[in-house]
Design a protein around this nucleic acid. Structure first.
Length: 484
RNA sequence: GUUCCCUUCGUCUAGCGGUUAGGACAUCACCCUUUCACGGUGAAGACACGGGUUCGAGUCCCGUAGGGAAUGCCA
């Protein structure tokens, strides 16, 4: 394929949610796969709903996901500007062209009149299609009527015909042109309407392929009509399945849809979110589930996109995230975790020791599936954190607990090194085991309690070498004082 | 109402006329483990329904039902 140019066209009316991210991802993958360009165009023609901070947030989210654009907003390119609010003269120019060729007209219909027309046709049981009384007015006639600001409407031809989209995802889709009436191109405030500026920009920016959500499928008809009227060839379309919430409805913020940055907040890796999102509506046909970002690019094919809606399953996302964490390099892991530790003021004793950093990551990585969970795991290993969980009360009832902790403390005091080695730990365990004649949970629950303040949780062998001896002794004292 | 889209285990999906309908998440069981996890093995679990076409249909066609979208001076 040649001259592949795709775009992601967000409107800054909210956060970048997972559906938008997936659309951006597929466009990105398609561009990278075929050596094309990924363009970011901002569709900010809705003055009432646009907010600049949403735009900033969306760009941050896209960059976090690694979906950086080659051309567009804040990057150079020969088809700019890439913000629709800065291209109003362009839209006016093409609207004028349609006006001049008699394919569009000024319309003075008010909202009330429109509502009335709609009501009437509903009463008659007929589908409502706007057909304005002004559609045959000349531009000169319209100019004389200066008291009302007109909109510019497209003049639908009298005779209906079918428009065909050869959709990459859905195959051939046909729309009868009489399913719509004369639609608005330019609003009375002078700003263009989505279907118009989208078509104009896609043509002018030489967009070759458009992957977008299924909800845009019916819009394609209007865009096709605009392309035809302006004598342009239309791009190739692919309408992606919807992402649904658990109740099978379209995912929306209200129903629990989260923005990408919220997933970041929950401790998901961008590579994992991309991986998971890619599997919603696309599959590699070979049972592979876990993909690195570069594998996603090399294995992606628009032919393997599927048309059915997909439910967003947090469980699977979490599992994929766990897989990505496990395959991380330890340096990369600590780099990502550090800001989260700092935020919670968690001070880990072993972080100045490179080999302990490596060891701790590898021995503990299977006990968390998100960075946030990792924070909770490593919190137990910080100098000053020792919180005795309610569940520990269980072992306070046991007659041997106090002795056990005393013995543990004594054994620790015998050790001369800063940290307890795994071997020392095994010896201490066995010594306690023999002296008190206990094993299993009777041994491990109190030990875990005295080490991390909980009776269940981390593998003790994995953490013993990460907590300084002094800290362990302190914790023993704290637990003992709790018992009294 | 009209137009368009969608429909395989609870969930994501493979399947493109002949399969014991495959994989993954979740669930459950067992194994590993002196505890908890991790891991391993296994079990249970699906072709929305009804008609055709065909020797044969999850697969092709037509209906029905269910879900969704559009029908905006939102995108």
């Amino acid at each position: 394929m040649k001259n592949i140019r795709v775009r992601f066209a967000p409107s800054p009316t909210g956060a970048l949610h997972v559906g938008g991210a997936r659309t951006a991802l597929f466009n990105f993958l398609f561009a990278k796969k075929y050596g094309g360009r990924f363009i970011l165009r901002v569709e900010d023609t809705d003055l009432d709903r646009n907010q600049e901070h949403f735009l900033t947030e969306q760009l941050t989210a896209l960059k976090w996901l690694g979906l950086d654009w080659d051309e567009g907003m804040d990057k150079a390119g020969e088809y700019g500007p890439y913000r629709q609010s800065q291209r109003l003269d362009v839209y006016n120019q093409y609207a004028q062209k349609l006006l001049d060729s008699g394919k569009a007209y000024y319309c003075f219909l008010t909202d009330d009149e429109l509502a009335h027309m709609k009501e009437t046709s509903q009463k008659e049981g007929k589908p409502f299609r706007v057909k304005s009384p002004y559609r045959n007015w000349s531009q000169e006639e319209a100019k004389k009527k200066q008291n009302v600001k007109p909109v510019i409407r497209f003049k639908m031809p009298e005779t209906a015909k079918n428009y065909v989209v050869d959709d990459v995802v859905r195959g051939r889709v046909e729309f009868p042109s009489d399913m719509i009436g004369d639609f608005v191109l330019i609003r009375s405030n002078g700003l263009p309407v989505y279907n118009f500026c989208c078509a104009v920009d896609d043509a002018l920016m030489k967009i070759s392929h458009i992957f977008r959500a299924e909800e845009h499928l019916p819009n394609t008809l209007r865009q096709l009509i605009i392309f035809e009227a302006l004598g342009w060839a239309s791009p190739v379309y692919g309408h992606l399945s919807l992402i649904l919430s658990t109740d099978k409805k379209k995912l929306s913020k209200r129903e629990g849809a989260l923005s990408c940055l919220e997933y970041k907040e929950q401790g998901h890796l961008p590579s994992a979110l991309n991986n998971f999102l890619a599997l919603l509506g696309w599959n590699p046909k070979d049972n592979q589930e876990v993909f690195s970002f570069s594998e996603l690019i090399s294995k992606f094919s628009e032919k393997n996109l599927n048309p059915a809606g997909a439910v967003f399953d947090e469980n699977k996302l979490k599992w994929i995230n766990a897989q990505h964490i496990r395959s991380m390099d330890y340096k990369e892991f600590w780099k990502m975790l550090q800001p989260l530790l700092d935020r919670d003021k968690i001070n880990l004793p072993f972080l100045n020791n490179e080999s302990l950093k490596e060891k701790s990551f590898h021995s503990l990585k299977s006990s968390f599936s998100t960075l946030k969970e990792a924070v909770e795991v490593f919190r137990f290993l910080s100098y000053d954190y020792f919180k005795i969980d309610d569940s520990v009360k269980e072992i306070f009832e046991w007659s041997h607990t106090k002795n056990l902790i005393q013995l543990w403390k004594e054994e620790l005091e015998k050790v001369k090194t800063e940290y307890i080695s795994l071997e020392d730990f095994k010896n201490i365990q066995n010594s306690i085991k023999t002296k008190l004649n206990i094993k299993g949970a009777l041994l491990f629950k109190p030990l875990r309690a005295v080490m991390i303040g909980q009776v269940e949780g981390l593998e003790l062998k994995a953490i013993i070498e990460l907590i300084p001896r002094e800290t362990l002794i302190q914790r023993s004292n704290q637990l003992l004082s709790q018992m009294c």
